[in-house]
Structures are given as C-alpha cells and as structure tokens.
Amino acid sequence: MPLRAHLAELRRRVFFAALGLVVGAAVGWWLYDPVFEALQMPLQHVADLRGDDLVALNFAGIATSFDMKLKVSFFLGVILSSPWWIYQLWAFITPGLTRKERHYAIGFLAAAVPLFLAGTALAWWALPNAVELLTGFTPEGSANLIDAQTYLGFVMRLILAFGLAFLLPVVMVALNFAGIGRAATWRKGWRWAVLIAFVFAAVMTPTPDAITMIAVAVPICLLYFAALVICVLHDRRVDRRRVAAGLPRLDGTLPGEDPSTGSATA
C-alpha cells in the first residue's frame, strides 16, 4: 500500500475512533450524576467517621463544576468506547501482519482488556482506604475542603496506574514473542520485580495496615510469574525449532551443546 493510501486509512481510522469517543463521552455525560456520587463516597465515609462535614469537595470557580463534568464525561467516554477505538487501531495494523501475527495480536488484546479492568477495580477498592488515611492528617477542628479537580486528578491517576500495572504481563509476553525480551532476562530480574511490586503497592495504597499493601502487591507478582512461565515455554518451543533446523539456540549455544554450560554433550 503506498504512503498516501496509508495516510488516508490512518485518517479514516482516527476519525472513526474520535467519533466513538464522542459517543462514549455523551453516554458519560448522562452517567455523570451517579458516577460523581460514587466518587464522593470515600469522602462521605471519612466525614461520617469524623462526625462532621469538614471533609468535602470544593468547586473554587464559577465554571469549575461545568469543567468537572466535561472531564468526567470524557474520562468515562475513553473507558466506555475502548473496545471501539482499540478495534480501529487493530483494523489499521492488521493489513501489515501475517496470519500468525494476527492471532498473537488478538490474544494480546483479549488479555489486555480484562487485565486493565481488573487493575482499575483493585484501585477502586483501595481508594477509600487511601482517602481515609490522607485526610486523617487534617488537624482537629480544621476543614479539609478538597479542590474538586485535584481530587478527580488523584482518582484518575490512581486508577490508570493500577490498570497499567496489570498490563505488565502482556508487555512481557509481547516483548518475548517479538524476540526482544527473553525468559532468562525476566527470570534473573524476578527479585527486583517483586520488590518494585511491593514498593508500588506501598506508595499507591498509603494505608497503615500491611494487609492492603499485600492484597495489591500479590496479584501483580502472580501476574509477573504467570507471564514468566509463558515466556519460558515459548523460548523452549523456539529452541526446539531452531535445533531441528540446525541453528543456534536463543542463548547462542549450538545443537549438541548443553545450554547450561555451553559444552558439548556426550
């Protein structure tokens, strides 16, 4: 396909994706009231614990409430229309892939969507505890009037951070299948991966109890090791094919050599 045709196809797919975002944002506008009520529930819970109304959202400007509604509607639109704009991306990339690569891409997309949603659900579960702890530093008798847009930004970053963290195994497997990241590399770095997972959980869920941190870190670690198993199985399958064809293994050892030592087998 010539460059001009590629650009025309890209423009068409971007237009359809943007149209889907607009439709999703319109649905998000309609869902704004119940969603905003759910966003306020952690703050209301803190206010009930304190027995006062000194923890609440503050709309500082005249147009802040309208701007807030626009941002929430667009954020909901991105989530609601994600199958549509992901399909548009897929439809643009597909013509340049082989049949086998298309099957891999479908599998990656099918795994990425539920993992991302699982991460966002875990973030929503951890949100009340984080809000309760962070607002707990408010001095006695003082009011904590939280800027509405600042609070929305905090919630969105928390949700996106957890969603992207749960996409780690998909990225690992994709790099492995592309020949960029070998299973041996992921296996050597498993200690760092576990450490990073617990640090991430401690930072993103700043609660005084260790149970919440463990509940967040353990699923991330399990996903890492599940992806590692898939990478190991894939590398072994590739090594068998290369040995059958008389080619060196992925680690550079030749057929007839021991992969662990690099010396010839008896």
Rank of each mutant, 00 (worst) to 15 (best):
I220L: 15
D251T: 12
A264E: 08
A8W: 08
K71Y: 01
K71S: 07
G107I: 04
F162E: 00
A201I: 04
A47R: 05
I106T: 10
A110W: 00
A118W: 00
L133G: 04
L254H: 12
W29Y: 07
A174S: 11
T120I: 13
G96E: 02
L164M: 14
I86W: 04
F92K: 09
G262F: 01
P128L: 07
V203Y: 06
F137H: 08
W125C: 09
A174K: 10
L250P: 02
A56N: 11
A47H: 01
L54F: 09
P139D: 03
W29A: 14
F177T: 10
I180V: 15
F108T: 02
F166S: 05
A5M: 11
F116A: 04
R50K: 11
G136K: 06
A110S: 11
W192G: 15
Q149G: 12
L80V: 07
L7M: 15
V35D: 04
A245E: 07
V238R: 12
L175W: 02
G256H: 06
V173G: 03
C231W: 00
Q149F: 11
M1L: 13
A123N: 06
G189D: 11
I93H: 08
A226D: 02
F92G: 06
I159R: 10
I196K: 08
A110E: 01
W124T: 09
A178T: 07
G262L: 07
G96I: 08
A165Q: 04
R12H: 05
V203C: 11
I86E: 03
K71R: 14
V23R: 08
F74M: 14
A193M: 07
L145W: 02
D33F: 13
W186H: 10
E37Y: 09
G163K: 06
L233W: 09
T265H: 09
V171C: 08
P248F: 10
A121G: 00
F15G: 14
W30D: 02
A210H: 10
T261L: 10
A105L: 15
